[in-house]
């Protein structure tokens, strides 16, 4: 864990640095001289993150160096990156698809894709789940809650 902690700390320092750079571009209002300016709060927080990250590095440094190679935990197993990555890609592409073809088609496609990906063999599930889930949700939103879901740019 010690090595992971150090990596985490480095990432947080990077994030804080980014916030510091971005906050340099925020103007300070002159109409409220009595209070701190708009960028002050995020700036203070960034310094806070940097200090905490340094503490995390210092407290883990010794352990990380002495940790035996076989005890080291990996943050991501290569196969889990692949597995989750594909899942994430399916969600992302479906949402992009939703912009064009609307909620129902995109979500049916997403559910079908996931069932194939999860190697579901049962034919009934393969057909019923992807159709029933989006349609049920669509009906509930459109008719019961009166909230329209995207119909897609193509069918506008």
């Amino acid at each position: 864990m010690a090595r992971i902690n150090i990596i985490v700390a480095l990432f947080f320092i990077l994030f804080a640095a980014l916030v510091l750079v971005l906050s340099a571009g925020i103007p300070v209002s002159e109409s409220q001289p009595l209070t701190m300016g708009t960028p002050t709060f995020p700036r203070m927080l960034s310094y806070g993150i940097i200090v905490l990250s340094l503490i995390l590095i210092v407290t883990n440094f010794h352990e990380a160096r002495t940790e035996k190679k076989e005890d080291r935990k990996r943050m991501f197993e290569p196969d889990s990156i692949k597995m989750v990555g594909i899942g994430l890609l399916i969600v992302f592409l479906s949402v992009v698809l939703m912009v064009f073809v609307g909620f129902i088609i995109a979500m049916v496609a997403m559910n079908v894709a996931f069932l194939f990906y999860f190697k579901v063999k049962n034919k009934v599930v393969l057909i019923v789940e992807p159709i029933v889930t989006p349609l049920l949700i669509y009906f509930m939103f459109q008719n019961v809650l009166n909230i329209p879901l995207p119909s897609g740019l193509l069918f506008y």
Partner: peptide
């Protein structure tokens, strides 16, 4: 879980 996961993801999107 093979069914729960797509359902939860659909709900998350909506």
């Amino acid at each position: 879980k093979q069914i729960i996961v797509p359902v939860v993801l659909t709900l998350s999107v909506v």
